Amino acid sequence: MAKIEFAWELGAHTGHVTTMLPVAAALKARGHEVRFLLREPHAAADLEGAAEIPREGAPIWSGPTINANPLNLGEILLNFGYHEAGPVKALIDAWREQLRASQAVIANVAPAAHLAARTLGIPSFEVSQGFHVPPPAMPAAPLRDWEPAPRARLEAADRRVLNSINQALAAFRGNPLTTIGDLFAGRSMLLTYPELDVYPERGPSDYYGITKSAEGKLVPDWPVGDGPRVFVYLYHYYKGLASLADALARQRCSTLALCRGVDSDIKGRHHGGSVYFAEEPMSVSRVLPQADIVICHASHQMTAQALLAGKPLLLLPTQLEQFLITRRVVRYGAGLGIAPEVNNPDYTSALTALAEGSEYASKAREFSDRYARHERGAALATMIARIEAALG
């Protein structure tokens, strides 16, 4: 049996771990030795099965931000140490040290882990919802298509990143990359759907869809309320949380809200009412079928789970990837979104529109029906087979 590392280098929050956990658990069950190397070592440690997998901190780079509003993946990478060959070489060295006794790497946004694997001659795979895996083109596709994205600026960013990477690879006599997308060529497993892919220009691709998700065990009773049942999954620091909870209460929505670290004042104000706040992870797969509406930040996993359950969405993105997913859902017609820069958002009107506008629920059910035959367990089995085939 093989020693397989699960790597996360860039990004934040639990979604990176929840994406990799089912794959890690399946490989562990088949007798492989697995380990998490995580940017946030304690992320998602409270999910079912997570405690059974050893975890350590991942090698990462810390430094000043070069692009406050990056236009493509190249500009994102410039913010994480890929602006010069020195930091890239240091990252590769650190990852090589972690991988020296390993036979494979499964990554979720860990470009340096892929580079280290290339220099060691071991297989690596990127398990991704697509945001960090652009189609192989020069330059990498723009992400903010509503803003001017001068081609010269995008090319300059990509060439700077590629120059840094290729100089670092030269120290190991590695073959140079010609585009940033080349880093993932033949290595990506796209756990998404064409309707949610933030690169619609990708064209025909091998989409796996999402696998079975890591989740909690809690299944609370729905509180008493005259309005629709609403499942909420938000960060405790979301600036509109108190106003949203008040809007849900005014409309008497029977609400189950998963919000780790929620402010005690907000939680206390709604104690015993129609809005119930939980901090312990819920069994989303059991709660979703009972809901009428889902409110979340447009993380890919939660958004896809809601659509597969046929539930319309109110999406409240807090960062770029979530905003891009929000745009895809809104364009598809299965929900509404409120951009993070909107002041005093009208949650009441959005909730009313979703509750009374049958077209949103209809489009969500259309998505659910389209992928009704998609067996998430089978997708996971296909991934495991591909990984094990690469082990030789």
Rank of each mutant, 00 (worst) to 15 (best):
H271N: 10
K239F: 02
I122Q: 07
D265H: 13
R260F: 07
L38F: 08
D221I: 14
K212E: 04
P123C: 04
V287L: 04
Y371D: 02
G333F: 08
V232G: 10
F367Y: 13
A24N: 14
L351G: 11
R39A: 08
R250N: 05
Y193N: 07
H16P: 06
P194G: 09
A309L: 13
E40I: 06
G268L: 00
T326R: 03
I60C: 13
P150D: 14
A29L: 01
L91H: 06
T326C: 06
A26S: 13
C259R: 10
D226G: 01
A101C: 02
A25L: 15
L354E: 04
L27D: 07
S264G: 03
L99W: 14
R250T: 01
G357M: 12
L99R: 11
L47F: 04
A378H: 10
E126C: 08
W146C: 00
Q290N: 01
N175R: 04
K3E: 08
R269G: 01
V294R: 00
E97A: 12
N175A: 10
A50P: 01
P142I: 07
V275E: 11
I4M: 07
Y208P: 02
A257W: 05
V219C: 14
M138Q: 04
A68H: 05
E201M: 00
A117Q: 12
I92E: 11
A141F: 00
P289F: 11
K267E: 15
A304I: 09
K363G: 06
T303G: 05
V109G: 01
K89E: 15
D206F: 12
W61M: 07
G268E: 07
G273R: 15
A50Y: 00
A25C: 02
M20W: 11
L354I: 02
R159Q: 12
